[in-house]
Design a protein around this nucleic acid. Structure first.
Lengths: 239, 239
DNA sequence: CGTACTATTGACCTAAATCAAAACGCGTGG
DNA sequence: CCACGCGTTTTGATTTAGGTCAATAGTACG
């Protein structure tokens, strides 16, 4: 539907991917003259709260963040996980509808809303970004509305394995090669539970079950070695 | 964040809201020269299936539609409800990620993707549209992840009462005036269940409970008279 | 009116929540 | 290096909200 092949907005500012130094600003073509402001967050820092005035957009350059909403009695639902290249800070009305919190150390590229709306190229990129988030949100809606605990956790694990499970799934690479991968959760059990619409105990029990079944090994609390990717994939409810 | 005040894309074509006749095309300013193609659907017609090639956008001019996804074993999750003024047909990759089906008789305005991407005004409008859908999706995520059956059904009913429950909630209009409203569901119990992540029986039981508590009256199967809006609102989990 | 959905109600079951305790990590300071 | 203490995770026992299965009751339509 749209044709751009950009994968990171910050790349608009130079030929090479942005790598954390302030040196190479070229003020290029259509991209506009944003200040290239960077912002750093420590794990669990809040970038903005639900209800704050929305004035900037952010791109995650490094690290992982989450968007969540709270009910008045304290129930929390994590609504979206943002990784490198993802954008956040969109708002329809003038206020954020979610709270944004860092899950790990994070490095952000900051854009003033004005910079975006004056650059067609950025507009276009932002649009793409929204569409991709929407698709993930749709998929997550199915997870929350219709999947069992085992299916939810399996789907979550698969989401951490690039190029597997999804549409362009490369399959279990025909030859009997490893089909194995170590993934960093970057989230506590509580955060995973709040993302998957479960309790911490249920998440823990499912992980133990997968361990007992020999599909995964828990290396550190937040680092899981998947010993049989295809096996996990079979449990997502999508096959 | 964006400044437009348009509320319907089809209005771009003339000063007055589009009202179902093909007469008044003005080929105006920036809006571009789309053909103004109209399409009609009967209840339960499918506009497109998940996986179909995405080539057009649609605006709901009249009626109600839903987007849904199916799991291979037949479980269904309704992901979004579209009403007058809403747009559908967005896609990130080149294929639809959901199936779109009419819930009632529907009248659509059809746009070729090309028309959209060449008109900045339309781009801008589509952007707004996406942001608003995203916000509703976030809210629905909380419903599916964290709310009880009673809260889900109450939230659903409140979503059918304009200007109540949400951010600009006008409150129970201080004077002891009615605080009453009849809403058209435009959905069967099964469709509501699939939207709220429940079973048909649970939806039915909750509705019966609200009836017994004197908060609603079921007029026809798909028309509910809410006798105490504020009472329902208290049950949404958001107060 | 009869046929055929659609919705409601009831009885029972189960997956996940809740409550409670034990085990594990992990950083701190001796 | 080890002991201590705190937070997180795991495990166990029990409860419960909502699911499943089955029968009945509406409602709509020709």
């Amino acid at each position: 539907m749209v044709s751009a092949t950009l994968t990171k907005l910050s790349d608009l500012d130079g030929q090479a991917p942005f790598n954390g130094c302030q040196e190479n600003f070229k003020q290029p073509e259509a991209a506009g003259k944003h200040l290239g402001r960077k912002q750093r967050l420590s794990a669990h820092d809040v970038l903005f709260y639900e209800g704050d005035k929305a004035e900037r957009l952010y791109e995650v350059v490094r690290g992982v963040m989450m968007l969540y909403k709270l009910l008045p009695d304290g129930r929390r639902q994590v609504v979206y996980i943002l990784r490198e290249g993802d954008m956040l800070g969109f708002s329809n009305r003038d206020f954020f509808d979610c709270t944004a919190e860092a899950l790990t150390e994070v490095e952000l590229q900051v854009f003033e809303s004005r910079e975006i709306s004056t650059s067609p190229m950025m507009q276009h990129y932002v649009n793409r970004c929204l569409l991709s988030q929407m698709e993930i949100l749709h998929e997550h809606t199915v997870l929350l509305g219709r999947k069992s605990a085992l299916e939810r956790v399996s789907t979550f694990l698969m989401s951490l394995v690039p190029n597997r499970g999804g549409h362009g799934c490369s399959g279990p690479n025909e030859e009997g090669r490893p089909d194995t991968k170590t993934v960093a959760l970057s989230m506590t059990r509580q955060e995973i539970a709040d993302y998957l619409g479960l309790t911490i105990e249920t998440v823990s029990r499912v992980i133990s079950q997968l361990k007992r079944r020999g599909l995964i090994k828990v290396e550190k609390q937040d680092s899981i070695h998947i010993t049989n990717i295809c096996g996990i994939c079979q449990l997502t409810g999508m096959h």
